[in-house]
């Protein structure tokens, strides 16, 4: 027993060490940084203050950035869920070669580097890019649409890249639903839509919850896509944070913003988890 306990500790040690060095320490450091006074010649001063929190909470500019980030992340999550569910359903019904091909297609957005992918979107969405050319050619529009540097394009690009994180957990959850449950529902008179509403959808909820959490957290923290496709006119929380840290070199202020974003994310995820607790508790196997 003692040996087994020691072995467990030993096995867990690398992970604990990793988390400590690369997560606990940096976060502690960041929290400390957020209380520093501003520096004159350096990025931060030597004394401690609450002024950054006061400034961030009191400035509508930062609230605007946070609101935009929340809106984009929520939109991305909802669209991702709507687009991904049918894909996940098909994937869960596939086997053999079809399954392998589908998995590869679904994972494909992740196989392209982040810069290449976003420059790809820039080319596609450009005023004389292929998307506008096609729409013009089809006669659907009279003049090219301004797509680049819009929130819509940011949302589209984020839905594209985060879809795998929604599809895979939902696919897993649907695969775990015994086919006999669907047959049982049918034998009791349930139509296909009733079976979906009453059986498949609730039982796939663990996958939905995992997917929604993953995509929301990834979307609200996304930096490269909003920075490249969102243009200079609007700011999002992550772009603002990076601007403070590497542009204006106001590290304490940047840290305060980062903590604000983290806490907001944590709050949203916690509220979502608690709100769906009852349902999840029922469907856990």
């Amino acid at each position: 027993m003692r040996r087994a306990a020691r072995l467990q500790l030993l096995l867990g040690l690398p992970a604990v060490a990793l988390i400590f060095v690369f997560m606990i320490l940096p976060i502690t450091n960041m929290v400390e940084m957020s209380f520093r006074t501003p520096g004159v010649t350096e990025p931060f001063g030597n004394d401690y203050t609450l002024m950054h929190y006061g400034r961030v909470l009191g400035d509508p500019y930062y609230w605007g950035a946070l609101g935009r980030s929340l809106l984009v992340a929520t939109t991305v999550t909802v669209l991702c869920l709507i687009v991904s569910y049918p894909v996940a359903w098909h994937l869960s019904k596939a086997d053999g070669l079809k399954m392998v091909i589908l998995y590869a297609l679904i994972a494909s957005p992740l196989m392209t580097g982040v810069l290449v992918r976003n420059f790809g979107w820039m080319i596609i969405a450009a005023l004389n890019g292929p998307l506008n050319q096609s729409l013009l050619g089809l006669g659907l529009i009279d003049r090219p649409l301004r797509l680049l540097f819009t929130q819509g394009l940011v949302v589209l690009a984020l839905v594209h890249v985060f879809m795998p994180f929604m599809v895979l957990p939902i696919n897993n959850a649907i695969r775990n639903i015994s086919p006999s449950l669907v047959e049982a529902a049918a034998s009791m008179g349930a139509s296909r839509s009733a079976t979906f509403r009453d059986i498949v959808l609730p039982l796939s909820f663990p996958g939905i919850q995992a997917g929604v959490t993953l995509v929301f957290v990834l979307a609200i923290a996304a930096y490269v896509t909003p920075a490249l496709l969102g243009g200079q006119m609007v700011t999002y929380m992550p772009t603002q944070i990076i601007a403070e840290l590497t542009g204006t070199f106001r590290w304490p202020l940047g840290s305060t913003l980062a903590i604000g974003l983290s806490l907001t994310t944590l709050l949203v995820v916690a509220v979502f988890t608690l709100a769906t607790w009852r349902l999840l508790d029922r469907v856990r196997a």
């Binding site: 049982a184 529902a185 609730p202 039982l203």
Partner: peptide, 12 residues
Amino acid sequence: GVVFQNYALFPH
């Protein structure tokens, strides 16, 4: 009415 070997009760 169908009764299944694995019961097929709706777990939720």
